[in-house]
C-alpha cells in the first residue's frame, strides 16, 4: 500500500497532479492558435498528409504491412457506414471493449457454473444490469408507444433523427 508506506511520494504526486494540470492547460491553451492555423492549409495538401499519417501510424503499431491494408479496408467500411447512416460510435466501442466484456462475461459464467443469477447476486450488479436492460428495451417501448399512440407523427420524427447520425 503506497498510501501507508510512502506518504511523501504519494502526496507529492497528488500535489503535482494539481499543479501539472494547471501547467498543462496553460501550455495547451497557448498552442491552440498554432493548431487552429493548421486548418487553414488547403484540403488538397492536408488530405495526402492525413493518408501518410494514417499509413505510418498503422504500420508502426506492429511493423506489419497487413495492418496498413486493414486500415485502408476499415476506411472503406467507415465510408459505407457514413453513406448508409450507420453510426460508427457503437462499432468502435465494441471493438475497444468488446473482448474485455466477453472476458468478464465468461469469467462470471465460470464462477457461477453457467447460471445467469450471478448478475443479480448483489445490489450493485443488479442495479447496473437492470438499468442496462431498461435502456435496451427503451427504443422498443417508445416505438410501441408511438405505434399505438399517434401513428401520424412517427414518420416525421424518424426522418429528423436520421439526420443527426454520427
Amino acid at each position: 500500500m503506497l498510501f501507508v508506506d510512502q506518504k511523501d511520494f504519494v502526496w507529492g504526486l497528488i500535489a503535482s497532479m494539481y499543479v501539472g494540470n494547471i501547467v498543462a492547460v496553460a501550455l495547451v491553451l497557448l498552442t491552440v492558435p498554432v493548431f487552429a492555423a493548421l486548418m487553414r492549409i488547403p484540403f488538397v495538401i492536408i488530405a495526402p498528409l492525413i493518408v501518410i499519417i494514417c499509413v505510418v501510424g498503422a504500420y508502426s503499431v506492429s511493423n506489419s504491412y497487413l495492418d496498413v491494408v486493414m486500415m485502408l479496408g476499415f476506411g472503406v467500411v467507415g465510408y459505407l457506414f457514413k453513406k448508409l447512416f450507420y453510426p460508427l460510435a457503437p462499432l468502435v466501442l465494441a471493438i475497444v471493449i468488446g473482448d474485455k466484456a466477453e472476458d468478464a462475461f465468461r469469467q462470471s459464467m465460470l464462477m457461477s457454473k453457467g447460471s445467469l443469477g450471478i448478475f443479480f447476486a448483489n445490489k450493485l450488479v443488479t442495479c447496473l444490469v437492470v438499468t442496462g436492460i431498461a435502456l435496451l428495451l427503451l427504443p422498443l417501448v417508445l416505438q410501441l408507444a408511438r405505434l399505438f399512440g399517434k401513428p401520424a407523427s412517427s414518420a416525421t420524427e424518424a426522418t429528423s433523427e436520421e439526420k443527426v447520425i454520427i
Partner: peptide, 13 residues
C-alpha cells in the same frame, strides 16, 4: 488501425 481507417480515411473518402 481500425480507428484511423474508420475515421481518418473514411472521412477523407
Amino acid at each position: 488501425v481500425a480507428v484511423m481507417g474508420l475515421f481518418g480515411i473514411g472521412e477523407l473518402l
